[in-house]
Amino acid sequence: MINKAFSFCCTCVLLLLSLLANAQQQNTEKGPVNEFFRSNDKIYVIVGVLLIIFAGIIIFLISLERKISRLERRDHQERQ
C-alpha cells in the first residue's frame, strides 16, 4: 500500500513539474545567490549539479547500509 501511495505522489509531483516547465520564463532575478551562480561562465551551476548527484549517491549508500544492518540484526536475533 505504501509503495502505491508513494508512486502516486511521485507521479503527481512530476506532472506538476511538467506544468511548471510549460509556463517557463527566463530567470533574470538579481541577488547575491543568482550573481554567484552566473559568475565565472556559470561553472558553479555544474559544481552544484555534481554536489546534488554526490549527495544522492551518499544518501542511497546510507539507506542501503541501514537496510543491511536491519537484516543483520534480525538474523542475529533468529540465531539466539
Binding site: 561553472i43 559544481v47 554536489l51
Partner: peptide, 8 residues
C-alpha cells in the same frame, strides 16, 4: 572538497 575545489 574535491568536487568544489576540483572545479573552481
Amino acid at each position: 572538497y574535491t568536487i568544489i575545489a576540483g572545479f573552481t
